[in-house]
């Protein structure tokens, strides 16, 4: 047949598998998912995981983030050994936790502790989107609450870097209650006149966005970070109207008065230091 003379076109685009995606940053070279610019992985890491060409901010692990912010050797971790149970006996949940622990080498989706940032002491919590999408279950809620309690006790500022898809479905109502738990702790911290800085990184949605992430004395975000209450797909299905290109980005929130400032990663440490300095009353 005539059509056999022509090479068959592939019907479907090839979607990179999870494994392929993971393999790329491990290699010598890394291709930017935004602008396709190819750069040395070492250079990229030196550049705080920001694409040199288009300024795309790669997700950071908790410890990469801490490394980019806190003074060397100053970090003391809290509750490193706390792990989740399976309160609703959800099938497969424990296995998923186990595989994420292997993958990320951390025990849960948040790392908490105290440290100094340019010699300013702080209590800091950094969420990690690689672990169950950074979702908040009992352990995430408890670790953040305990960190806030430490900040109250030590009279220190509390800084959180959020990265979370929201509540952890497998823990059901207990996961919802973590929103209330962290809130009662933050209220106590706030009533003592202590400083709380929230920095939203990609992505910060659902229950995390609708609790501690949004109630900082200062709400900051990284460029282009996805931040929102409801998922884009849900909204499109509900209202059947086209959403703007920049919908639920950090820039969109800034435009609508929901953020104090969008801070590129390179300026993060400096800006936080500046805020801490002003709050310590030790500015020039």
């Amino acid at each position: 047949m005539l059509k056999d003379f022509f090479a068959k076109k592939k019907k479907y685009a090839t979607i990179p598998t999870e494994k392929m995606k993971q393999d790329v940053p491990e290699g010598l070279m890394t291709k930017c998912p935004e602008c396709k610019h190819i750069m040395y992985t070492k250079e990229l890491k030196k550049n705080l995981l920001v694409c040199q060409s288009c300024q795309y901010h790669y997700p950071m692990s908790s410890f990469e983030r801490l490394g980019s912010l806190v003074d060397e050797g100053s970090f003391t971790e809290y509750d490193r050994n706390m792990i989740s149970e399976n309160p609703l006996e959800f099938p497969g949940y424990l296995e998923k936790l186990d595989s994420d622990r292997k993958k990320t080498k951390i025990n849960e989706a948040v790392v908490t502790g105290d440290a100094t940032i340019n010699e300013h002491p702080v209590v800091i919590a950094v969420m990690d989107s690689r672990f169950r999408m950074g979702s908040m279950g009992s352990v995430v809620g408890e670790k953040i609450t305990r960190a806030i309690e430490q900040a109250v006790e030590k009279e220190l500022p509390f800084i959180i870097f959020t990265a979370s898809g929201g509540a952890r479905m497998q823990e059901g109502i207990l996961s919802l209650m973590q929103m209330a738990k962290t809130s009662v702790a933050l209220k106590r911290h706030s009533d003592r006149g202590l400083l709380f800085i929230s920095v939203m990184t990609h992505p910060t949605t659902g229950g995390v966005s609708a609790s501690f992430a949004s109630v900082g004395d200062y709400n900051f975000a990284e460029p282009k970070a996805l931040i929102g209450f409801a998922g884009r797909r849900v909204i499109e299905q509900t209202i059947r109207e086209d959403l703007p290109e920049d919908f639920q980005t950090a820039e969109f929130l800034l435009k609508h008065g929901q953020l104090d400032k969008v801070i590129p990663r390179h300026e993060m440490k400096e800006t936080l230091t500046n805020v801490l300095k002003i709050h310590s009353g030790r500015g020039e």
Partner: peptide
């Protein structure tokens, strides 16, 4: 609210 949650060490 502080008492809500299940975890272990």
């Amino acid at each position: 609210y502080k008492n809500m949650g299940k975890f272990t060490f």
